[in-house]
Simulated scan of single mutants.
Amino acid sequence: MHEIICPHCQKAFKIDEAGYADILKQVRDSEFDEQLHERLKLAEKDKINAIELAKEKVSGDMQKAAADKDGEIQKLRAKLGASEVAQKHAVAEAMKVVEKERDALAAKLKQAKQDQKTASELANANHSNKLQETSAEKDAEIQQLKAKLSANEIVQKYAITEVVNEAEKERDKLKVGIERANLEKQLAETALKDKYETQLKDRDHEIDRLRDMKARLSTKMVGETLEQHCETEFNRIRATAFPTAYFEKDNDARTGRKGAYIFRDLDES
């Protein structure tokens, strides 16, 4: 607990810790606000003073810069005036030089025209003589060229004739070769056709022969032929494979009827 005396009535009263802390906070906040307000006023005043000083400085600098610019402009104007005067003087001098050169060139041109006229008259006189000489030379050259051209035409015609003759000979040779090849082709085709026709005829004859043989052979004849074949083959290998065996017909001597073929293998004992 804390005891506090009121500044107005001078009475003492007690408050707890929370109330005391709250009162201290209010007192401190009030003092802080007053100090902050005073500092803000001072800062605002300093800012206004600084702005005024800056304005005065800028105004002075601008006046000085304007004065410097005016002086520089005056100097440039003076230089420009002097330059224009010098330029006019230089142009006048250059015009004098150009006019002098122009007059000299005009005089030279006039003299050149006069010389050309004189030379032209002299050249016309000489040209007439040279023209006659040149004409005679050209006529002679034309005659020579005509003679050469005529000779070339004769040589060319002869060469063309030779080429045509060679071409005709080659053509005739090729024509004969083609005819011979066609003839050989026809002969080969004819021989091949005859060959195949002969083969076809032989095959037809063989087919007819086999058909006739088949028609003439009966079942009995086929069987007897097979039996004879088997007997022949058996007798061919009998001595080595079947020395004690027999393969023969079982004929009946009493009736004379032929029996069937029977295979007998006898014991050696």
Rank of each mutant, 00 (worst) to 15 (best):
residue 56 E to Y: 10
residue 180 R to I: 05
residue 116 Q to C: 11
residue 140 A to T: 13
residue 72 E to Q: 03
residue 189 E to R: 08
residue 194 D to Y: 08
residue 230 C to T: 08
residue 8 H to C: 00
residue 8 H to W: 01
residue 189 E to Q: 06
residue 220 K to Y: 11
residue 35 Q to A: 15
residue 191 A to M: 05
residue 85 V to T: 08
residue 27 V to F: 06
residue 183 L to H: 14
residue 159 A to R: 15
residue 122 L to S: 12
residue 263 F to L: 15
residue 230 C to I: 08
residue 76 L to V: 02
residue 36 L to S: 06
residue 259 G to W: 03
residue 142 I to N: 10
residue 96 K to R: 12
residue 106 A to D: 12
residue 109 L to C: 09
residue 185 K to N: 09
residue 208 D to Y: 05
residue 86 A to Q: 00
residue 205 H to C: 09
residue 243 P to G: 01
residue 42 L to S: 04
residue 40 L to N: 10
residue 248 E to W: 03
residue 35 Q to N: 12
residue 39 R to D: 13
residue 221 M to E: 03
residue 213 M to I: 08
residue 247 F to I: 03
residue 33 D to H: 14
residue 254 R to T: 10
residue 118 T to C: 00
residue 27 V to R: 09
residue 52 E to M: 08
residue 41 K to L: 08
residue 189 E to I: 01
residue 161 T to P: 02
residue 104 A to C: 10
residue 35 Q to T: 13
residue 265 D to I: 07
residue 89 H to V: 11
residue 77 R to K: 14
residue 37 H to A: 15
residue 171 R to Y: 00
residue 57 K to V: 13
residue 178 I to L: 12
residue 56 E to A: 15
residue 232 T to V: 12
residue 85 V to H: 03
residue 218 S to H: 03
residue 268 E to Q: 11
residue 89 H to R: 07
residue 34 E to W: 11
residue 88 K to A: 15
residue 258 K to H: 04
residue 106 A to M: 12
residue 226 L to M: 14
residue 64 K to P: 04
residue 95 M to Q: 14
residue 144 Q to I: 03
residue 33 D to L: 15
residue 1 M to E: 02
residue 269 S to M: 05
residue 123 A to W: 03
residue 148 K to R: 01
residue 90 A to V: 05
residue 130 K to A: 07
residue 19 G to L: 02
residue 98 V to S: 01
residue 92 A to W: 05
residue 194 D to V: 07
residue 27 V to W: 06
residue 154 I to L: 14
residue 30 S to M: 08
residue 106 A to G: 07
residue 33 D to R: 15
residue 67 A to F: 05
residue 67 A to Q: 04
residue 4 I to Q: 01
residue 69 K to L: 09
residue 33 D to I: 15
residue 81 G to V: 01
residue 117 K to D: 07
residue 130 K to W: 04
residue 246 Y to E: 15
residue 195 K to L: 02
residue 58 V to M: 12
residue 257 R to Y: 07
residue 159 A to I: 13
residue 40 L to M: 14
residue 176 V to Y: 10
residue 152 N to T: 09
residue 87 Q to R: 11
residue 35 Q to G: 06
residue 164 V to C: 02
residue 78 A to F: 06
residue 258 K to Q: 01
residue 184 E to V: 07
residue 201 K to N: 13
residue 116 Q to G: 10
residue 44 E to K: 09
residue 69 K to G: 01
residue 218 S to D: 02
residue 109 L to H: 05
residue 32 F to K: 15
residue 164 V to S: 03
residue 143 Q to E: 04
residue 77 R to C: 14
residue 123 A to Y: 02
residue 37 H to K: 14
residue 208 D to E: 08
residue 5 I to R: 01
residue 184 E to Y: 08
residue 44 E to N: 07
residue 11 K to Y: 04
residue 254 R to M: 08
residue 87 Q to K: 09
residue 162 E to W: 10
residue 5 I to S: 05
residue 208 D to R: 12
residue 10 Q to G: 00
residue 30 S to E: 04
residue 205 H to M: 08
residue 147 A to D: 11
residue 223 G to K: 14
residue 119 A to P: 09
residue 49 N to D: 07
residue 152 N to D: 12
residue 151 A to T: 06
residue 15 I to S: 00
residue 149 L to Y: 00
residue 264 R to S: 14
residue 177 G to R: 04
residue 21 A to D: 06
residue 106 A to N: 09
residue 76 L to R: 07
residue 38 E to V: 12
residue 87 Q to M: 14
